[in-house]
Design a protein around this nucleic acid. Sequence first.
DNA 1: CAGGATCCTAAACGATACTG
DNA 2: CAGTATCGTTTAGGATCCTG
Lengths: 153, 153
Amino acid sequence: MNANEPLPGAEAPAIAKLMERGELFAAECPSRAVLQHVTSRWGVLVLVALLAGTHRFSDLRRKIGGVSEKMLAQTLQWLEGDGFVLRTQYPVVPPHVEYSLTPMGVEVARQVEGLADWIEGNLGRILSGRRERADALAVAPLPGVRAGVRTPA
Amino acid sequence: MNANEPLPGAEAPAIAKLMERGELFAAECPSRAVLQHVTSRWGVLVLVALLAGTHRFSDLRRKIGGVSEKMLAQTLQWLEGDGFVLRTQYPVVPPHVEYSLTPMGVEVARQVEGLADWIEGNLGRILSGRRERADALAVAPLPGVRAGVRTPA
DNA sequence: CAGGATCCTAAACGATACTG
DNA sequence: CAGTATCGTTTAGGATCCTG
């Protein structure tokens, strides 16, 4: 990665010590901001939605249940600022604006989609697992099995 | 109205697949809660950290720069509740607790890792692209097709 | 239609202190 | 050591009104 030159003031004292994976574990790592945008509540959904093609503002708003105008606009601005989303505005009235993924945006969106798909595809396992653990707790509230003492496998 | 026009480079996705993930777009979809835990500010880092092996509470706290005790504890509880993290407590004094990924946790963690790695690996492109766009705006504030008069976050 | 501006609430977050 | 409890601060997020 040839990306470790910018950010004035970003010292690298103990940073190098943080394993090969690196910088993400450092508090001041610039990757974290990007990660926040991409993994934000609406960022994930916007990226996945745009993977299906260009959308207008209202289209996105209708498609992504529960998002407010403000948060959708803000999320789109974050993603545009990171270079993941392209905003194309046509000088007509009433205003016509289209949002699409940049080539780079397609790449992140695919990663995000992988995560989203995994969760949706495994929701059954997750929910049933949660239920089983709850039952085990109700039946045996003793400090024996569940969250209680357990010897390593 | 080309809202669903396929993206260049993105093959027309299988219709069935769109239906599969349809739930995420619904406001009340239970997947969203899980997604929130996994993509939360510290959830991402915890999962990636645990992918490297079992950690004690303090180990995680030291490794993940900037996390507070409170948020680390809460994040671990979320992930444990979802069945991604296994908490093993040894009945000794002083207390000894170990956190590790469950088999299911390893699967999500890999997805999350893919995203995290992509961002770290492409941070250079992201930052330089951001700078180029800022320069272009300063030099040529033309209100062409590509507009964007705004202050960056 | 696409947002910006404004105001507000709920939640996230962090620092500190305390306990088994 | 591994938390919980509490408190104060910050931010996310939402509702509403307004304009080009």
